[in-house]
Structures are given as structure tokens and as C-alpha cells.
């Protein structure tokens, strides 16, 4: 087993185990904090795949932003922490059929598909190509996304302010 494999299995194990805790834990705070390790594991896998920019963005956006927001939300809504969360099983049969079909489809794709495994030369870093693609080829979409985020921000501010006045 090479070092690369070892590190891959380490990150995969972190992702799977913490993801399992997220779903099964009865304490919502534990779920929120183990989501941190899930995001971290995914970051490691991105980095191993050579997607360095996506890996760091994953860390900035999910760990530094969304997760903190989530934990803040969980903590400030104090009553939620005392409620017993439902982690038992309901509708077992439809869920089993659904997941079984999905797992079957995934394994079929994995085994039947022709995976091109060759010597691909990785780019040293992806930021230069990513930057020129975003700002030259897809600049319209990029700008539209920026406007969408701005609209969402202004909307959130307006909603928050209206609540205070009434």
C-alpha cells in the first residue's frame, strides 16, 4: 500500500465515520460538530484528487462559514438542544427499496463503466486556468451569481430590519 492510498483511506474513514455520527447521534450539537470532521475529510479527498482550489474553498466556505452559522443557529435556539431527536426508523420498507435501488445503480455504474485509467498529467495548480475560465469564458454566469448573492444579502437585511421595527 502506497502512502497515497494510506492517506486516502484515512480521509475516507474520517468522512464515513463522522458522517455516520451526524446521522445517528441523538444530540444535535454532536451532529453539528461531527459535520466539521465530515467536511474536513472531504477537503482531504479533494486535495488528493489534485483539486487544490476546491479543497481550500471547501474549508473556507463549509468549515469557516456554513458550519459556524449552523452551530450558532443550534446554540441560539436553546430549546432544540433539549428535545430528543428522532433517530429511529420510520417507513423502513420504502426507504430500503429507495436506497437499494440507488446503491444498485451506483454499483452498476462503478462496475460496468469503462474507467479511463492512464497517466494523466496533473496541473501543478488549478487556480490560473480556473480564474481565466471564470472571468473570460463564463464571466456572464459569474457576474449573475454575484448579483444573486447580493440580492439575497439585501433581502436578508431587509427582513431582519422589518422584524425589529414592529
Amino acid at each position: 500500500m502506497s502512502t497515497y492510498d494510506l492517506i486516502f483511506y484515512l480521509f475516507a474513514a474520517i468522512t464515513l465515520l463522522s458522517g455516520f455520527v451526524v446521522v445517528t447521534s441523538k444530540n444535535i450539537i454532536y451532529s453539528a460538530f461531527s459535520l466539521l470532521f465530515t467536511f474536513f475529510g472531504v477537503t482531504g479527498i479533494y486535495a488528493l484528487l489534485g483539486a487544490d482550489f476546491i479543497a481550500v474553498v471547501q474549508l473556507v466556505v463549509y468549515v469557516g462559514g456554513i458550519l459556524i452559522l449552523l452551530i450558532f443557529g443550534v446554540m441560539l435556539t436553546n430549546k432544540v438542544t433539549n428535545v430528543d431527536l428522532k433517530t429511529g426508523g420510520v417507513n423502513v420498507l420504502p426507504a430500503a427499496i429507495g436506497t437499494g435501488l440507488f446503491a444498485g445503480a451506483l454499483t452498476a455504474i462503478m462496475s460496468k463503466n469503462y474507467w479511463r485509467a492512464g497517466n494523466i498529467t496533473y496541473e501543478e495548480t488549478t487556480i490560473y486556468t480556473l480564474g481565466s475560465k471564470l472571468l473570460l469564458e463564463y464571466s456572464l454566469i459569474f457576474e449573475l451569481l454575484a448579483i444573486l448573492l447580493l440580492v439575497a444579502l439585501v433581502g436578508a437585511a431587509v427582513i431582519a430590519r422589518r422584524g425589529r421595527e414592529s
Binding site: 460538530f33 466539521l36 474536513f40 487544490d52 482550489f53 479543497a55 481550500v56 474553498v57 474549508l59 473556507v60 468549515v63 469557516g64 462559514g65 458550519l67 459556524i68 452551530i71 450558532f72 446554540m75 501543478e124 495548480t125 487556480i127
Partner: peptide, 20 residues
């Protein structure tokens, strides 16, 4: 790594989560 300084900014997120 070519992400250098962006990475340094990013990992400070872990500190934030730890403090919380």
C-alpha cells in the same frame, strides 16, 4: 502548495470551530 496564503486563511476556520 500554490494555495499558500489562501490555505492559511482557511485553516483558521478550524480554530473558530474549536473555540466555539
Amino acid at each position: 502548495i500554490d494555495m499558500g496564503i489562501f490555505y492559511v486563511v482557511a485553516v483558521s476556520g478550524l480554530v473558530v470551530a474549536g473555540i466555539l
